[in-house]
């Protein structure tokens, strides 16, 4: 190949006669819906916030509060519900909105990609936080159950390896739930921002 410079003239001469769009069509075009990746990230993130918040609400509704109180978990569950159900989602929604508003198509390419990835990362941190909260709640509840006189007696009657069995079931359950949530997230995340991550690495490469 000869030098790229030689193509400068020919580049300027391009006319695209067959592709010209008239004012009328342009006028209609600019009012159509955008299909940008940012819009998808916004919708998917909102769905994730909603789904996880709904899971929190349903988990709370399904709890047998009397049983929890008997096990000494009433206070613990109240705090968990307030923190995981309200404080954490509100904090992350605020962060997400703040980052989302900073996305500007007129900034530099590097700054634009960085702000999109930052917005998406906020959702990733939210998911990790919820997954951790679910894990800690399940582990703590299991521990409390095993140490409550009523349930410990029941387990002892059921099997000699009752405690071990319960831990096994709980850990398997945690792994399955956490694994599914993380797999779903990384698939979605990977598909959406794979191109952006690649381009960002290209830009930051020295």
């Amino acid at each position: 190949m000869e030098d790229l410079k030689q193509y400068k003239d020919v580049w300027r001469q391009q006319e695209y006669k067959d592709l010209q769009v008239d004012e009328n069509t342009l006028s209609q075009m600019i009012h159509r819906k955008s299909s940008s990746i940012v819009k998808w990230i916004f919708y998917i993130s909102l769905i994730e916030f909603l789904v996880l918040t709904l899971i929190n609400i349903f988990v709370k509704l399904d709890e047998n509060e009397t049983d929890l109180k008997q096990m000494g978990l009433g206070q613990f569950m109240n705090w968990i519900t307030i923190i995981v159900g309200y404080i954490i989602p509100l904090f992350f929604i605020y962060l997400f909105y703040k980052n989302y508003k900073q996305i500007s198509v007129t900034s530099t390419t590097k700054a634009l990609i960085h702000s999109i990835l930052k917005t998406r990362k906020t959702v990733m941190y939210y998911i990790i936080t919820i997954v951790l909260a679910i894990t800690i709640t399940l582990l703590y509840s299991t521990y409390a159950i095993l140490h409550s006189p009523e349930y410990a007696g029941l387990l002892a009657d059921y099997s000699t390896n009752g405690e071990l069995l319960l831990w096994g079931i709980v850990i398997l359950f945690i792994l399955a739930v956490d694994g599914l949530l993380l797999l779903f997230y990384f698939l979605l995340y990977g598909l959406l921002v794979r191109k952006l991550i690649f381009n960002y690495k290209e830009l930051t490469k020295q």
Binding site: S36, T109, N199
Partner: peptide, 12 residues
Amino acid sequence: RVALNTAISLYR
């Protein structure tokens, strides 16, 4: 700038 940014970062 806007056209390149859209092609590189926003377009699917």
